[in-house]
Design a protein around this nucleic acid. Structure first.
Ligand code: FES
Ligand code: FES
Lengths: 144, 144
DNA sequence: TTTATTTCGGATAAATTTATCCTATTTATA
DNA sequence: TATAAATAGGATAAATTTATCCGAAATAAA
């Protein structure tokens, strides 16, 4: 469904959010330990999230990654997915035609559209805050 | 969403079905021309579909690929996807945890489950016959 | 200002997916 | 039986994704 990079990116953003509520910055090392991902690869993904203004980075000693506490609720899952995987998963044709076009539909278009739109809606309506709070409360988990 | 191999496999199966209604067998060459896919790679995927008893192959002169006309309606999209990509797309965890487990859910589990189940349902309820008939009638397309 | 810490970013490598090529095997027909 | 046509399958290559490594740049504190 999502690329590995995207899975790591989502989990990393959630973990950073939980720590940001505590006013703490986190390093790629802490993040990869917490979400069970390769450290250097995760660092690359973090750079991409920074470039897309989804998370914030602070260089140098006592630096790390964080998200503005007051903004966590505004970050949508769709922004993260779009930053890493692009929008093809919820905009593209399910059978790989150049584009999804009502006037030139692939064989599964009518059947697929509903699923894809529901996915899109879910990604656009889900924000980091609710995901982070469920992690903090122990209702959900980032690894294993 | 699906791998290229899976996209080709689905389109190939649909095309083979349309020709099987006419009592005709088709070659990888015809198939790849019709669905706009690399011929040798497509041939490999066809072998996999044969092994999973989704399509039938006839070797030698006047041979080719076909599907038993009376069986086209029984072939579900889920069988094709499962034969090529496995079931992870509609059974696995959306964030890549070892398995999707209600008792150890990832952060998006509750949100993702609905989409994934709808996808599963769609794949299990859609059969080759309806897809092939829409191609024959010109209501849908296999390429561009 | 020096040092320790930390992200940034380029180069490279490993793994997987996608794609090609060539030969063997099978089979219908002449 | 000989031949031509067609799938099967192994070996290999190209492309993409995933992953690692290392030095440069930035920054806070001593
Ligand atoms: S054309 Fe394929 S999903 Fe719309
Ligand atoms: S645990 Fe991740 S989708 Fe169910």
């Amino acid at each position: 469904m999502f690329s590995k990079a995207c899975e790591y990116g989502i989990k990393a953003a959630i973990f950073i959010a939980t720590k940001s509520y505590e006013g703490k910055r986190v390093s790629p090392k802490e993040i990869s330990a917490e979400i069970d991902s390769p450290q250097a690869f995760t660092a690359k993904i973090l750079q991409a999230l920074v470039k897309h203004n989804i998370i914030n980075s602070v260089k140098g000693a006592y630096g790390g990654f964080e998200i503005d506490k007051t903004n966590i609720g505004n970050v949508k899952l769709s922004q993260i997915v779009n930053a890493i995987d692009g929008d093809s998963i919820y905009s593209g044709c399910g059978l790989g035609l150049e584009k999804c076009d009502e006037n030139h539909p692939c064989p599964v278009h009518d059947k697929f559209k509903g699923v894809r739109d529901e996915l899109k809606h879910m990604l656009e309506e889900t924000n980091l805050e609710e995901l982070a709070l469920n992690i903090k409360s122990g209702a959900s988990f980032l690894k294993l």
